[in-house]
Nucleic acid binder design. Structure first.
Length: 304
DNA sequence: CTCCAGGTTCCGG
DNA sequence: CCGGAACATGGA
């Protein structure tokens, strides 16, 4: 349905929803035919539609949307703090308007627990399966949607049921973490007010949460813009671009480098590098364990 | 068939 | 602190 003429309008001079919502920080939004997006912010049905230097909010609460999409982040100033090497500049140009959004902590944490060794489309599929099975059904103008189920709901599920959502070995981790939170052994809102190192350490006590997932939660839910998740892509980028001759890069060395090189908005820099590389802007061949050998002719058959 | 994916955990140097 | 291996599932 077309947006009503009186749709609330948010000023957003530098906000690119398509890049933001496809950049692998959140997984449950749908593009609409008119170039907008729809999804849930928590349990609030929301639709946004870019319109010039602002966005229309035909459905949902504009204030909630403004906070969720972090329209208060001073993007120009943030990008100005990035190091000015070629890779960083290219990524910054390619990702103009991408924002690090503020997700509800639990659904961010749970989703990234399921993300281990999965591709972005799989993470999305698992999120939808979990939502459809245990989430609150919410009617929206374009049909029903499902909120992410709270920890108590997942804590009451079985590992088998979670595996049926495609979680594999991640099912055990999500279940144990949901129970830790549902039982009150861990308080996410307490973590929200801790300094970065303490918050990171607290998150890492949860099953299925290591350095990388903890940093994703710090960055994508708690607005800790210096948090720098190192996944396979970022590992490749840092190795190839910044340590082209290093033999064995340890996680610790990459952490130390990232913290000092990318600065107070390292999380933004990380997300721009990640998305630019993942969308093909930075050509990075995956490191193969056994490099393929080019042959002039096909190898002869080799029956046993 | 093989390889890989927004990793974490557990184990032995 | 470091390197390896196991861990499920689905798509290329």
């Amino acid at each position: 349905m077309p947006p009503k003429p009186e749709s609330p309008r948010l000023p957003a001079a530098l906000f690119h929803p398509a890049i933001t919502l496809s950049s692998g920080q959140v997984f449950h939004w749908d593009a609409t035919l008119d170039g907008g997006f729809e999804g849930l912010i928590g349990a609030m049905p929301t639709r946004i539609l870019p319109s010039g230097s602002s966005i229309l909010v035909p459905c949902g609460d504009p204030d909630v949307a403004a906070r969720y999409f972090a329209l208060d982040h001073p993007l120009e100033a943030i990008c100005a703090t990035f190091p000015s090497d070629p890779a960083m500049r290219a990524a910054t140009d390619a990702c103009r308007g991408m924002r690090i959004i503020r997700q509800p902590p639990w659904e961010c944490l749970a989703t990234f627990i399921t993300s281990a060794l999965k591709q972005v489309p799989h993470i999305r599929a698992m999120s939808f399966a979990i939502r459809a099975r245990w989430g609150l059904r919410i009617e929206t103008p374009s049909g029903p949607r499902f909120a992410y189920p709270p920890p108590e709901r997942i804590a009451a599920a079985t590992e088998t049921e979670l595996r049926a959502c495609g979680l594999g070995f991640r099912a055990k981790h999500l279940l144990a973490t949901a129970r830790a939170i549902a039982d009150g052994r861990i308080h996410l809102d307490a973590i929200a007010s801790m300094p970065d190192p303490e918050a990171r350490a607290a998150l890492c006590t949860l099953p299925g949460v290591g350095e990388k997932v903890a940093n994703c939660v710090l960055l994508f839910a708690f607005g800790r813009l210096a948090a720098f998740p190192v996944d396979t892509w970022i590992h490749r980028i840092l190795s190839r671009v910044y340590f082209p001759h290093a033999r064995n890069l340890t996680p610790k060395r990459l952490r130390d480098f990232a913290a000092s090189y990318f600065g107070p908005y390292g999380g933004y820099a990380q997300q721009y590098l990640f998305h630019h590389a993942r969308t093909g802007g930075l050509v990075l061949r995956p490191a193969r364990k056994s490099p393929k050998i080019l042959l002039r002719s096909p190898p002869p058959p080799h029956p046993q």
